[in-house]
């Protein structure tokens, strides 16, 4: 009973403790606010700039969601294709791995060249940075069906489509949602990178401008907003995942 209360409180206590330590360190070592502003100064900035922070955060959220939605669509489609065909898997593997290895920051200038400064580069950066984990995970879920399960179905005369819909897709759902958790954070990083380099709006752009003005507390305030938004997005994905694939967790608990 007591233990479970502590468990529930732990996330809040640890977060509070982290900021308390931060504040104490800044004061004790009298660190300049230009180097590392204490949480109190960041809080002041948060309050002072709440309006631009709010509108820009909203914009970033939009960019991230759009990019993320694209990578779900695209990632699912490619993942299903790659997972269901050994030929495609063999053929596309080097392309996908190579593409994933390209630092996405390096792609932003190209996107600007193609689409100019605006909302497209952040969305596309979010997309290109976040679709890979989805592809890989969905493909893995499909490609690792137990051979016996496949035999049972094939011996009944099941077509490949049958096996895919009856087993492959439900089975790859936990992999898919696992990938979403990684992807959403990546998409978020992607849209901020895009905004920093190729947008007049969004938290990324706000950070660029604030650091040009040496407004360090505002930079940190923006970072805090990013962190909170990130936690929120992951929580949303977590929630959906639990609703959709609770069986995977419960069956693992039963197995282990």
């Amino acid at each position: 009973m007591k233990r479970s209360i502590w468990l529930r409180l732990a996330p809040y206590l640890f977060t509070l403790g982290f900021f308390a330590l931060w504040e104490a360190a800044c004061r004790a070592l009298s660190i300049s606010a230009f180097v590392l502003p204490p949480p109190s100064a960041i809080w002041t900035a948060l309050v002072q700039y709440q309006k631009p922070l709010y509108t820009n955060a909203f914009h970033t959220l939009w960019m991230t969601s759009a990019g993320f939605a694209l990578s779900i669509l695209f990632g699912l489609a490619v993942g299903l294709l790659v997972g269901s065909s050994r030929l495609l898997r063999a053929g596309l593997n080097p392309l996908l791995v190579g593409f994933n290895a390209i630092p996405k920051v390096a792609v932003v200038p190209i996107l600007v060249l193609w689409f100019g400064v605006g909302w497209l580069p952040p969305v596309l950066t979010a997309f290109v940075i976040s679709f890979f984990p989805i592809v890989v995970n969905v493909a893995t879920g499909l490609a690792t069906i137990e051979p016996e399960t496949e035999d049972v179905l094939k011996a009944l005369g099941a077509s490949r489509l049958d096996i895919m819909t009856k087993v492959g897709i439900p089975r790859s759902l936990p992999y898919f949602f696992g990938a979403l958790k990684v992807s959403i954070t990546l998409a978020y990083v992607g849209s901020v990178i895009g905004e920093q380099n190729a947008s007049n709006l969004g938290i990324g752009n706000l950070i660029t401008r604030a650091s040009a003005d040496f407004n360090v507390p505002l930079v940190f305030a923006a970072l805090i907003v990013l962190a909170v938004l990130g936690i929120f997005l992951v929580a949303v994905v977590d929630f959906v995942e639990n609703r959709m694939t609770g069986w995977a967790k419960r069956s693992q608990m039963a197995g282990g």
Partner: peptide
């Protein structure tokens, strides 16, 4: 693959996202 067979293995390979009854109905869906 002939279509008049039923198979069972050492590993029961039931689908964990289906109830036992739904698992039984699987062959009938095919």
């Amino acid at each position: 693959p002939i279509k008049i067979t039923g198979m069972a293995f050492q590993n029961p390979v039931l689908l964990p996202w289906r109830t036992t009854l739904e698992n039984l109905l699987l062959p009938l869906e095919v």
